Amino acid sequence: LAALHAEGPLAGLPVTRSDARVLIFNEWEERKKSEPWLRLDMSDKAIFRRYPHLR
């Protein structure tokens, strides 16, 4: 499970980098069924690119 911001401008976004990794992994797991070539990237760089508020 990932903790998400409940309200405000960040509502629905992950609270920590660990939470972001959970979301990225879950999405990758779903997408790899139809796109088996996808690589999993959970590096800090990938997290910041996707969720800049975690910098």
Rank of each mutant, 00 (worst) to 15 (best):
P52I: 02
H53R: 09
D41Y: 05
R55E: 11
A3R: 15
M42K: 02
D19R: 02
P52Q: 02
L10S: 05
M42S: 05
K32H: 13
P52M: 02
E27S: 05
E30D: 10
S43R: 11
Y51I: 00
P14K: 01
P9F: 08
L38Y: 12
L23G: 01
F25R: 11
Y51Q: 00
E27V: 04
A46H: 11
L1K: 14
L23W: 03
E7R: 08
K33L: 11
D44N: 12
R31E: 04
H5P: 04
R31G: 06
L4Y: 05
P9R: 07
A3N: 15
Y51A: 00
R31H: 07
L13A: 03
K45G: 11
R31P: 05
R17H: 09
R21I: 09
P52N: 02
I24V: 07
E35V: 05
V22I: 15
R39S: 12
N26H: 13
R39G: 09
K33F: 12
R39M: 13
K33N: 10
V22F: 10
F48A: 10
R49I: 15
W28K: 00
F48C: 10
D19G: 06
L13H: 04
K33G: 09
P14N: 01
A20E: 01
E27H: 06
A20M: 01
N26R: 14
E29T: 15
L23R: 03
V22H: 09
A2Y: 07
L13W: 06
F48T: 11
D19W: 03
I24M: 13
L38A: 12
P52G: 03
G12C: 09
K45A: 14
S43L: 03
K32S: 13
W37G: 14
R21S: 06
P14I: 01
T16W: 03
K33R: 10
V15W: 05
N26G: 08
R31L: 10
E27C: 06
R17S: 11
L10R: 04
T16H: 08
L1I: 15
D44C: 10
L40I: 06
R39T: 14
S34H: 13
K33P: 07
L54V: 01
A6W: 10
R31C: 06
S43E: 03
P52F: 02
L40P: 06
K45H: 13
S18D: 14
E35Q: 08
G8R: 04
P14Q: 00
K32P: 02
D44I: 11
A20D: 00
L54D: 00
A11K: 14
I24F: 06
R17Q: 12
E7L: 08
M42Q: 08
L10P: 04
D44F: 07
G8K: 06
R17C: 13
Y51K: 00
R55V: 13
E29S: 15
K45Y: 12
S34Y: 13
P14A: 01
V22C: 13
V15H: 06
A46Q: 08
I47G: 00
A2G: 08
E35H: 09
V22L: 14
E35Y: 09
R39N: 12
K33Y: 09
W28C: 03
R49E: 15
L13S: 03
L10N: 09
R55Y: 12
P36F: 06
A6P: 11
E27D: 12
I47V: 12
L38C: 08
A6G: 12
V15G: 03
V15N: 03
V15D: 02
F48S: 11
L40W: 02
I47R: 00
E35W: 08
V15M: 13
D19I: 03
Y51C: 01
P14C: 01
A20Q: 00
G8W: 05
A2Q: 08
A3M: 14
W37A: 09
E27I: 06
H53A: 01
M42I: 14
L4I: 11
A3K: 15
K32E: 03
D41F: 05
E7Y: 11
S34G: 11
L40N: 02
L1D: 11
L40M: 04
I47T: 02
P52D: 02
R17L: 15
R39I: 14
L38N: 05
S18Y: 14
L54H: 00
A46M: 08
T16E: 07
R39H: 12
A11F: 12
E29K: 15
F48P: 01
L23N: 02
D44E: 09
E27Y: 05
L13G: 02
L38T: 09
G12Y: 05
A3V: 14
S34T: 15
R50W: 04
D41A: 03
L4H: 05
D19Y: 03
L10H: 11
W37L: 12
S18V: 10
R39Q: 15
E35G: 03
E35C: 11
L13E: 05
G12K: 06
E7H: 11
L10E: 04
P52W: 02
L38M: 07
E35K: 07
L23Y: 04
W37N: 15
P52Y: 01
E30Y: 10
R50I: 09
L4K: 07
W37E: 12
R39D: 12
K33C: 10
L23D: 07
R31Y: 04
A6Y: 10
I47F: 01
R21A: 09
F48R: 07
L54N: 00
P36K: 07
N26L: 15
F48I: 14
G12H: 05
K33M: 10
S43F: 02
K33I: 11
D44L: 14
H5N: 08
H53C: 01
I47K: 00
E7M: 09
V22R: 13
A2P: 14
E7D: 14
N26I: 14
R49P: 02
T16A: 08
K32N: 08
H53Y: 07
P36S: 07
S18P: 05
S34V: 13
L38S: 07
R39L: 11
T16I: 01
L4S: 06
G12T: 04
Y51N: 00
A46T: 10
S34P: 02
K45F: 10
S43T: 10
K45I: 09
G8Q: 05
T16V: 01
P14H: 01
A2D: 05
I47H: 01
A11I: 11
H5F: 14
A20C: 02
W28Y: 11
N26E: 11
E27L: 07
A11D: 06
A11Q: 13
P36M: 05
A6K: 15
P14D: 01
K33D: 09
E29R: 15
M42H: 05
L54S: 00
E29H: 13
E7V: 11
L54K: 00
W28F: 09
A6V: 13
D41N: 07
W37C: 15
H5M: 05
L54G: 00
R31M: 09
H53M: 01
P14F: 02
L13Y: 06
E29Q: 15
G12V: 03
G12Q: 05
W37S: 13
T16S: 12
H5D: 04
D19L: 02
K45S: 14
